[in-house]
Amino acid sequence: MLLPSPSELCWGIKLPPEQKWLEKAIHFAVSNIWQRAHRIARSQLGDESQTLEMIEIAIGKAVDRLQLNSQASPEEVTQLLERLYLQEVRHRRKANNRIVLVGASEDLSSTSTHHPQSLVDSAIDLDIILQNIPPEVRFALLLRYSQSRWNEIAAVLGTTEASIRLRCKRALNRIRQKLEDKKHGL
């Protein structure tokens, strides 16, 4: 699968004209940390599969912080984005270390989901889909589930609509994919 370009990761950031500099600065920062972010994910987490998600989370946090400040240089934005990305990597590495394996490998054959019904039952497990998601994103999803509008959710969380939607995007895509899989009996 082809990796999206850094600019595609910035697609959700739509800011007012006076903050156009931030959109450009984030684009510049993503381009700068792109290769290094993949190397860090590989070395710290064992694979690169979470890189895009972690960069998106770092972008969301960076936009939140920078909107409160006066104009920062592209280099400062790069440093901030990299710091937030590393923070997310550390968070996930700690979470991975807390995983406890119970039972022996022989047990797997009796507990694995070979039965079609089991596959359907396990197709959507929000605990798994939403694991490692920050509390404010969980809360945003619950508010959206209770039919609050995105602008209302942003106001409750004290952020912008673009930022919170960007941060929820990955979880929403996972839920959408699971519901589609279930619909098709996968």
Binding site: C10, W11, G12, K14, E23, W150, E161, A162
Partner: peptide
């Protein structure tokens, strides 16, 4: 995907 795509 366009760089400046907005949410519906």
């Amino acid at each position: 995907m366009a760089e400046n795509q907005t949410f519906p």
